[in-house]
Write a protein that binds this DNA or RNA. Structure first.
Length: 423
RNA sequence: GGAGAGGUGGCUGAGUGGUCGAAAGCGGCAUCCUGCUAAGAUGUUGUAGGGUCAAAAGCUCUACCGAGGGUUCGAAUCCCUCCCUCUCCGCCA
């Protein structure tokens, strides 16, 4: 959500920035400005009428004994009321339209985000590790099934496709990864949170999931609650409607939650394996920062996530997303992609974004320097640290041995009673 | 699930149809005072939107007493619907 006043004062800036994402957004912006203009006119008119009505009401109370005057005033008020009713209907309608449209306006990209139309024009920042290329390496779903740690058939039996059962060392590895990543984040000063996994609609709107992506999420039938698609939603909402003091910033949080996504529209993508599941586990890193430091905090958060891949010794690359590929709410975003030797590709395992004040304006989180300062919106930042299912899949491939066993990454062994191999 | 109570400004808490955006206290801010670990005095003190203005300040208008409707010239106050919180009972991991 943008500040309408700001858009009004420099429409060309917004047009230029938004057109870098998508040219059609310029049309949307122009529509918004037109409606805004009309709405303000109507509001002014309505305010005037309300003012007169208020005047009449107090005149009546002041001269109650003058019956004929009172009657005249009453009828004037009733006449105004009729006109006002029409105008108010219009006002409400325009306000609704305005909000509706403004909700669909994505964030403007930062100046240092490269221009590009789609993911092919993203920019590689760094590449780390030595990717394995042996052609005997099997995809994770084959090795996982063979080792009896990934059970796809039973996942479908219990739920439906894109649900998988982890068993034995699979389940233990998942849990070890969870603990390892949370410990890593805690060491770096993130406060661990275990939030509700069902959230209300306001939280979903606040972080930008709704209204644009309705249909991507699981919604309860009898309550207006959603299963979280990411811990970003509850964690960023922790400070909803709060004013924080500058010296309390940045706030750093980490959280484990399962994540639920309907993956509508991903019908033929990643149908095998555990890359794209309806339910997956993830550790999320979230920061609430001041506008002065958000850029630095974003870089550091990304590095905190990268460090996990380095500790696990998984080859990865860091991508700076271009204007056409950046997420709806983000102004700048790095993706971390881990190497999958069986397919010979890097796949996204973390997405670290700076949202500027975009989410904060929706959620209403502000900060101020001292008690007498006027509060301003915070900046929010988040990133996966990391998606656990994909990390497990990456381990099964990158740590695979020719005899069909999988070596356990050194950093995880202390979480697994020093086991060094899955066989 | 059953029974009851309640939702008012940063907080506590008055206010049951007319200068109520809302008493009072606390807190915050500003100034003053006093040499004694701190207190006192006075003033000030919400949010959002609009208009005016080059802009800021200022001035001004409107809205907001859980949300949405209704009654009325006029609603924090009356009526209806919904949401939420708390207490007790029951049930349950």
């Amino acid at each position: 959500m943008h500040d309408l006043k700001d858009i009004r004062s420099k429409p060309d800036y917004y047009k230029e920035k938004l057109s870098k994402r998508n040219k059609e957004l310029v049309t949307l912006l122009e529509e918004i400005l037109t409606i805004d203009q009309k709405k303000r006119e109507v509001q002014t008119k309505a305010d005037e009428l309300r003012k007169r009505k208020n005047e009449i009401a107090s005149e009546i109370s002041r001269s109650k004994d003058d019956l004929s005057k009172t009657e005249t005033l009453k009828s004037e008020s009733i006449t105004i009321g009729t006109t006002l009713g029409e105008i108010e209907k219009n006002e409400i309608d325009l306000t609704f339209q305005l909000n509706e449209k403004a909700m669909w306006l994505p964030n403007v990209p930062s100046d240092d985000v490269p221009f590009g139309e789609d993911e092919t024009q993203n920019k590689e920042v760094i590449k780390w590790g030595n990717p394995r290329t042996e052609n005997w390496i099997k995809p994770h779903w084959e090795i996982g099934a063979k080792l009896n740690i990934l059970d796809f058939e039973r996942g479908v039996k219990i739920a439906q496709s894109r649900f998988t059962v982890l068993s034995g060392m699979g389940a233990k590895l998942e849990r070890a990864l969870m603990n390892f990543m949370l410990d890593h984040a805690s060491e770096r000063g993130y406060t661990e949170i275990f939030p509700p996994i069902l959230v209300n609609k306001e939280a979903m709107i606040g972080t930008g999931q709704l209204p644009k992506f309705e249909g991507d999420f699981y919604k309860c039938e009898n309550e207006l609650l959603y299963l979280v698609p990411t811990a970003e939603v509850p964690i960023t909402s922790l400070h909803k409607d709060e004013v924080l003091m500058l010296d309390q910033l940045p706030r750093k949080y980490c959280a484990y939650t399962p994540c639920f996504r309907r993956e509508a529209g991903a019908a033929s993508k990643d149908t095998r394996g555990i890359i794209r599941q309806h339910q997956f586990n993830k550790i999320e890193l979230v920061k609430v920062a001041s506008s002065e430091t958000s850029d630095k905090e974003h870089e550091e958060l990304t590095q905190d996530a990268e460090e996990i891949l380095r500790k696990l010794e998984l080859p990865y690359r860091k991508i700076l997303l271009c204007t056409g590929d950046i997420g709806f709410s983000a102004m700048k975003c790095y993706d971390l992609e881990v190497w999958f030797p069986s397919q010979g590709v890097y796949r996204e395992i973390s997405s670290c974004s700076n949202f500027g004040s975009f989410q904060a304006r929706r959620i209403n989180i502000k900060y101020k320097l001292t008690q007498k300062d006027k509060p301003v919106f915070v900046h929010t930042i988040n990133g996966s640290g990391l998606a656990i299912g994909r990390t497990l899949a990456a381990i099964l491939e990158n740590y695979q041995n020719e005899d069909g066993t999988v070596t356990i990454p050194k950093i995880l062994r202390s979480y697994l009673k020093n086991a060094d191999k899955v066989n």
